[in-house]
Amino acid sequence: MAETNGNASRVEIRFSGSGGQGILLAAAIVAEAATALGKNVVQTQSYGPAARGGASKAEAILADDEIDYPEIDTPDVSLCLSQEAYEKYARDTRPGGLLVYDSGLVEPDDRLRGRELHGIPFTQAAAEHLKKTVVANIVAVGALVEITGMVPAEAAEAAVVSRVPERFRELNVEAFRLGRRLASEA
């Protein structure tokens, strides 16, 4: 297990994928869960002018100390949901770091040797179990939380509930729990 447990004094996480996959929401959920723990939290995002497509990223820093520079060069932890985003953003994951990726959409290469890799087919699992690929991001958040323990699962689930519109709440909570299950079975 990489140094990503709740005791680390500073964890830098990068979420990346293609525009429309819900990367920003995934980052906001983790950030909100950490906020509830009393951590210092900064969450930033970067995307182009288009609402769909293109590689987009969001980042979250969870720390005990004050967070000055709000961006990340070499993330401790990456969550990646598209090949384009992998090439552009996830490859920078630091040696000894950890990458959680959608194994149906991303093929990591040799350059990430020395990182802990967890491939889970989030999009395919969302289609099979929930009939909705749109919640693949939340499935991925569930897996990320289960694998890293960077925030307690209860806090993350509460953040899912608070961040998604009411009529999609149940679906998203199911997606979150599915992600946790897939990660613990993997």
Partner: peptide, 9 residues
């Protein structure tokens, strides 16, 4: 743009 879109605790 950075600050406007940034979230903080």
């Amino acid at each position: 743009a950075l600050l406007g879109h940034m979230r903080e605790a």
